[in-house]
Nucleic acid binder design. Structure first.
Length: 697
DNA sequence: AAAACTCCTCTTTTT
DNA sequence: GAGGAGTTTT
């Protein structure tokens, strides 16, 4: 408690009515939530499994668990700390039978959704390339709690999209037949469950004596509705967020949830956290002045006691190549001064395509870098294929998985046979897997084909009947018997090995949930690297020196988000999020000419630059050939190189009795240096390095 | 089933 | 300009 400021303290102890905390960038939001959990538990005697703590990302959930564990020093096994989706999954696995689903349901991610929608479009003879838009519109409807029936009911209105309605109805039907839930269903069906079973709702209202919600500005309608249902009885709810950092509107997030909270909970108390512990005053002035041009927002004034710091640097270059080279040179200059490690630098861009030139430039200068984001681990083809084998073995109804693996690896079951199976399934309303069995009983197929099909069925049935020691066991069995491993290239086998490692010692069903809900395995990079990422990926992070590139009309704001004032506002927030990641130094760059999709375009400076107060900004000269860049003198508020620690977050270690674990945090120095390690079977432990007998692996 | 060819798209992406 | 997906050819 002692190291909290007065507003943070109030946010922590206030429980008399619903609480809305506006937590500005860098204002210690996670800290407040974690401490509030501990306060509720210790001082107010709320049991640790009665506080529903909701985050948006798995990473944030993990971080929250670590923090809470740090201050409670007790097992959090039964605690409800997790993402919206994982919490709903946990509830639904227990209760979904009340909705007529089986609790071994599969969870479909976006890729599965796309596969299914494309399949439906093909069948309906609708132009298949529309699938992406349809998937996102269906998702939007679901997250607004508009089911297929409700959508159909709106059907007589002008401009009603009949095709969409038809596909939506069919899509939801297919999910039900496959005993599968997509991500949105996890939320929607939990809402449905509670709406149709007041007793169950009451049970969970009783169970959760307090609700703690992180990143509230990112909730969609369905998620907020769910919170309101759960909070209705007691109104013991605390939501924390920042409307200025809402950057996921395109995913259904609704800023109005945070802006209207006080209307929905008239008793709500409002607290603003405005002290920023991250950035210098110049950075706050610049970012604050940019964001203040958004109209629909809560007024707030971030301040810091870190001092003025460096002015924000700005440089306009001729081409995107010059921009990249310039940044590489600047980073090198800073690095050579010995103040920063590589990991203290980050380059943010609006679209992934911009990373290419920057990569090249960094490589030319011999600077180590790492790109964050991109295709996540569990989205990889080979991983999804193996997961599909597991899913079908556990849930025979899973048609999407069936289609994925029936002829993968190729086993001579072609399109013609598949069509027969589809027809049979439709005729007798069976799952594809059962339809296949039904066909085999007849004698309409050649014996050679029948044999192959029978082999496939036998294989899946064997996969599902074996009692496995762990998910890794099951995967090994699948790899062994399916012939899948042989068809893989070297690089992909490495990923499979990694999957096996992460499946070690896990219950198969738990592992499948994880594989479905954990979409990116963010391996905290143990090596010292410059970070490259999109502005979206930058949210929640901080770096000493930040570069935001491509400050041009058409890039930031992006050309496809310039049609409505709302879109511009979101682009501005995106810029704001990027700027507020910087602790000491912020660089903004742009270029007059840029090659995009093989076309050279002439670029104008971003409109957002006009909103920057001149006195906070230092305009840099363009790079002149051969001359090194004169950097402004770095202020001494900057700390020297961090204390060297052998164990950095993300590296794997082995403990004599607890086995293998992943380092979460390393703190203290010299003899007292301690690490926090998450062991796969024993959870999180804190260890003093000099006693623990750890081995780095 | 693999190889060759054509066509299409190209924003961000917590789960 | 490149990568992915679907189609046609061998």
């Amino acid at each position: 408690m002692h190291d909290l400021n007065p507003q943070q303290k109030e946010a922590l102890t206030y429980i008399d009515s619903p609480l809305l905390v506006f937590a500005g960038a860098g204002s210690g939001k996670t800290k407040v939530i974690a401490h509030k959990f501990c306060y509720l538990h210790k001082a107010k005697k709320f049991s640790s499994d009665s506080i529903l703590t909701v985050t948006f990302t798995n990473k944030a959930a993990d971080e929250m668990k670590v923090r809470i564990h740090q201050c409670l020093e007790k097992d959090l096994n039964g605690a409800w700390i997790g993402t919206f989706h994982s919490q709903c999954n946990r509830i639904l696995r227990r209760e979904i039978k009340a909705l007529g689903y089986n609790n071994n349901f599969s969870i479909y991610d976006e890729d599965d959704q796309c596969n299914l929608v494309r399949h439906i479009l093909k069948e309906f003879k609708i132009y298949e390339a529309l699938y992406k838009g349809i998937v996102s519109r269906i998702s939007y409807l679901k997250s607004s709690l508009i089911g297929p029936e409700e959508f159909l009911a709106t059907g007589d209105g002008f401009g009603f999209d009949e095709k969409l309605a038809k596909v939506y109805v069919r899509y939801q039907d297919e999910l039900i037949r496959s005993n599968a839930l997509d991500f949105d269903d996890l939320i929607v069906l939990t809402v449905k469950l509670f709406q149709s079973n007041p007793k169950l709702l009451e049970k969970y209202q009783d169970k959760f004596t307090y609700l703690l919600v992180d990143e509230f500005q990112d909730t969609n309608y369905a998620q907020y509705y769910l919170l309101k249902l759960l909070a209705a009885a007691r109104e013991r709810i605390c939501v924390v967020g920042d409307d200025d950092q809402s950057i996921y509107k395109f995913r259904g997030a609704n800023v109005n949830n945070i802006l209207n909270f006080e209307r929905d909970f008239p008793e709500a108390k409002l607290i603003k956290l405005e002290q920023n512990y991250r950035s210098t005053q110049h950075i706050l002035n610049v970012s604050g002045s940019v964001i203040s041009h958004n109209l629909k927002r809560k007024q707030k004034r971030l301040w810091t006691d870190k001092g003025q710091g460096d002015k924000v640097h700005f440089c306009w270059l001729n081409t995107h190549n010059d921009e990249a080279k310039y940044i590489a040179k600047v980073i090198k200059e800073y690095y050579l001064k010995g103040i920063y490690n590589y990991r203290d630098f980050a380059v943010f861009y609006r679209v992934n395509i911009q990373a290419r030139v920057i990569e090249d430039a960094l490589r030319d200068e011999g600077l180590p870098y790492r790109i964050h984001g991109g295709i996540s681990f569990y989205q990889r083809k080979e991983i999804k294929d193996l997961v599909a084998y597991m899913r079908l073995s556990i849930n025979y109804g899973d048609n999407v998985s069936f289609r994925r693996i029936i002829n993968n690896p190729p086993r001579g079951i072609g399109a013609a046979v598949l069509t027969r199976i589809e027809n049979e399934a439709k005729k007798k309303s069976l799952a594809l897997f059962d339809a296949l069995k039904s066909i085999l009983r007849g004698d309409s197929l050649a014996n050679t084909v029948k044999e192959k099909l029978a082999d496939f069925i036998k294989m899946i049935e064997r996969f599902s009947s074996v009692k496995y020691k762990s998910a890794a066991d099951m995967l090994k069995n699948i790899l062994d018997k399916s012939g899948y491993a042989e068809s893989l290239a070297e690089e992909r086998i490495k990923n499979v090995e990694e999957l096996l490692l992460s499946a070690e010692g896990k219950e198969t069903k738990d592992f499948l949930d994880k594989a479905s809900l954990l979409t990116n395995m963010d391996d905290a990079c143990a090596t010292d690297c410059i970070s490259l990422m999109t502005l979206h990926n930058a949210k929640g992070l901080e770096f000493h020196v930040v570069f935001i590139v491509g400050l041009e009309e058409g890039i930031l704001p992006y050309c496809k988000a310039m049609n409505h004032e709302e879109e511009i506002a979101e682009e501005r927030r995106l810029f704001y999020v990027g700027m507020t990641r910087a602790k000491d130094v912020l660089w903004l760059t742009g270029a007059s000419r840029r090659k995009l999709y093989a076309k050279i375009q002439h670029q104008e400076p971003s409109r957002f630059l006009k909103d920057i107060p001149k006195e906070c900004c230092q305009w840099m000269e363009k790079i002149t050939n051969g001359h090194t860049i004169k950097l402004p003198s770095v202020k001494k508020s900057i700390k020297p190189h961090e204390v060297f620690c052998l164990y950095t977050a993300g590296c794997r270690v082995k403990h004599p009795s607890w086995g293998i674990g992943v380092v979460r945090d390393c703190y203290g120095d010299g003899e007292d240096q301690k690490v926090m390690v998450n062991f796969s079977n024993f959870g999180i432990k804190r260890l003093a390095i000099r006693f623990a007998n750890l081995e780095k692996i």
